[in-house]
């Protein structure tokens, strides 16, 4: 950000020594991820992968192994790049984040966290300290990303999370990144799936809605219609795999 002159801070504070913000733990019905958790540690986390395989699948395609040694979960969210992967993941998982300042702590739903490209709800004098992911039974999740080469930002990517009750979708999250989806989400696709049996036709309908309601831009990663096509295909694949995991169909 600084090298590209997108940010020109007058003062920098190195928070790398705040090791108390580096943790992944299950507390009650929440998976809690400290903001200083390195990508490499979230990738390796058994507890995270056991509850939500989407986390490991996304981390595997975030940057590269060396960068993952340094980059943090909180840093990625706060950079708020419109193509950032975890933003779509946490949107799908219906996470919330904890923001701390001298006035105390506040919990912000992920849907209210990103206020625009490279901007977030974190105010002056505040810092993101934690991500909270609700853990509920009957869950399945998956991440599908297309990138031009290892370590690149997504051409398009979809994260899907499904919660089933009695074979039908009780709750669903569909996160999209790099394609101009408001708050990294496809609300229309989510609404179409709720209450449905997640079969091929329901998944196809949701994927079509996701493709229709995002706003990709033509750029060096591809034209707009290509990206829209990708959103449909990646959403289908993610939903299919997430549904299979709900019923224990896939490890």
């Amino acid at each position: 950000m600084m090298k590209l002159r997108l940010a020109q801070p007058e003062v920098l504070i190195d928070i790398n020594d705040l090791s108390e913000l580096a943790y992944i733990s299950l507390e009650g019905t929440e998976l809690r991820i400290g903001a200083m958790t390195r990508h490499a540690d979230l990738l390796a986390s058994e507890v995270a992968a056991a509850h939500y395989p989407i986390l490991r699948e996304a981390e595997r395609v975030i940057a590269d192994p060396i960068v993952r040694n340094r980059g943090t979960v909180g840093g990625s969210l706060c950079q708020a790049d419109p193509s950032e992967d975890l933003s779509a993941v946490f949107a799908a998982l219906q996470a919330s984040v904890v923001v701390a300042g001298s006035g105390g702590r506040r919990v912000v739903p992920i849907a209210e966290f990103h206020t625009g490209p490279y901007t977030t709800a974190v105010g002056p004098g505040e810092v993101l300290v934690e991500v909270r992911v609700p853990v509920r039974s009957g869950a399945g999740s998956a991440y599908e990303k297309l990138e031009r080469r290892v370590g690149d930002w997504a051409v398009a990517a979809c994260g899907a999370a499904l919660w089933l009750e009695g074979g039908t979708v009780s709750e669903v999250g569909i996160g999209l990144t790099a394609v101009g989806a408001p708050h990294f989400r496809s609300v229309e696709a989510e609404d179409s799936l709720r209450g449905q049996v997640p079969d091929e036709s329901a998944i196809a309908a949701a994927a079509a809605l996701a493709a229709r309601h995002c706003n990709p831009s033509s750029d060096q990663r591809g034209p707009e219609d290509y990206k829209r096509h990708l959103v449909g295909e990646l959403t289908s694949r993610a939903l299919r795999r997430a549904a299979a995991r709900c019923v224990g169909g896939e490890a």
């Binding site: 920098l12 190195d14 060396i66 960068v67 040694n69 340094r70």
Partner: peptide, 10 residues
């Protein structure tokens, strides 16, 4: 003890 990219470390 961890490999890092030293162009992105002050």
């Amino acid at each position: 003890g961890l490999p890092v990219k030293s162009c992105t470390v002050l």
